[in-house]
Computed example of a mutant assay.
Amino acid sequence: MRTELSIVAAPGRLPRIEAAGGLAGRHTGPDTVHLIGTAATPLGGDELDIRIVVRPGARLTVRSVAATIALPSTLTPLSTAHWDVEVGEGGVLDFDPEPTIVAGGAVHHTVTTVRLAGDARLRLRERVQLGRSGEDEGGWRGDLVADLGAVPLLRHRLELGAGSCTDDRLRAPRALDSELRYPDDRPAWTGGIDAVRLPLAAGGTLATRTGARLSVEMPTATEPAVPVG
């Protein structure tokens, strides 16, 4: 199945939503959209293409009503999702959906491309868990490419699962909590060997936490986060 979803926010009106396939959006506030699954997706072989645009001066909050579960099919374990995010001058995007659960035997790849204007504001969070209860298989790979105008902001790839470059017999992380913020001038911070927040050269920060299971909240340092609004 191929799924296409477009959410475009502009000042003075509800976000415009266009959807086809297994994912849709619903207005749950003047500037809030919740993602809703309308079919079992992603299955192996499925492709998701999601576009989120915040026009200059607009605000958009994106959430989801439930976790996304990636499942294998009889033909292939691999499913893919492409997220295309654009935030214009003075725009604000707060993106924090429920986690993606990669079921045993499934492999899910995501590519997220972000384009920000110089005075845009962004909080983009991604959470991934390999395996449902009693499962320890599955694989995930995520690419995050972000630009600030014509300036590269971030080029980042992380893999989870057996055979990935981050896997080993001693620790074998199976969960990821990642958050990109712009702007954010907090300094670098580490919370043990599993959690880190790094400032980016062009501004903003990337925080990541890996482990066996997702925690309720992203661990942060003692200083407060820069509010998205």
Rank of each mutant, 00 (worst) to 15 (best):
T112C: 03
V114W: 00
H34Y: 00
R213Q: 12
I69E: 12
P56L: 07
A19Q: 08
A221N: 10
W189P: 04
D184L: 13
P227V: 09
P15C: 09
V226Y: 06
A103W: 10
L198R: 11
H109L: 00
D185W: 05
V128I: 15
A202I: 02
G21L: 03
L78Y: 02
P219N: 05
G21H: 03
D177I: 08
D136N: 11
V128T: 08
A66F: 06
T210E: 10
E179T: 14
R132D: 08
P77H: 02
L60K: 07
R197F: 06
P152C: 03
G134Q: 10
R169D: 15
P56V: 06
G25L: 06
L78D: 08
A225T: 10
R51Y: 01
D136C: 10
I50T: 04
P72G: 13
D184K: 01
S133Y: 11
D184T: 11
R13A: 14
G138V: 09
V87T: 08
F95W: 15
T76D: 13
V92G: 00
P227R: 15
V53K: 04
A106N: 07
V87M: 00
G29I: 10
A81I: 00
S73P: 08
S133P: 07
V128Q: 05
R132A: 13
W189L: 11
L75Q: 13
L148S: 00
R55M: 15
H156K: 04
L71G: 04
L124R: 05
G142I: 00
G161S: 09
V114F: 01
P227F: 04
G149M: 07
D31R: 09
A175K: 02
T190Q: 12
S215C: 05
T3G: 00
P30K: 03
L23H: 01
R155Y: 06
A67P: 13
R13E: 14
A39R: 09
L60Q: 07
V216D: 06
Q129W: 10
G22Y: 11
V151P: 01
P183N: 04
R2C: 01
D167S: 15
R155C: 03
G118H: 14
A66V: 01
E159N: 03
P173L: 10
T190V: 12
R59M: 01
A207M: 07
T100D: 03
P56H: 08
L154Q: 09
L5T: 09
W189H: 09
G211C: 12
P30H: 11
A19G: 13
I17T: 15
P97T: 10
P11H: 11
G211F: 12
D49Q: 02
L75D: 15
A221S: 14
H27M: 12
A225L: 14
E98D: 14
S215D: 12
L160H: 03
L116N: 05
D177V: 08
R169S: 14
T166G: 13
S164Y: 08
V102E: 02
L78R: 12
T110L: 01
A120Q: 02
D143Y: 00
L200P: 06
L144F: 00
T38V: 11
R123F: 02
T113D: 05
R169N: 14
G22I: 04
G118K: 11
A207F: 06
G57R: 04
E159D: 15
E217L: 13
A117K: 05
L23G: 04
L5P: 01
G138N: 04
G88R: 07
Y182E: 05
L176N: 09
A106I: 08
A188K: 09
I52L: 15
D31E: 14
G192I: 00
R169E: 15
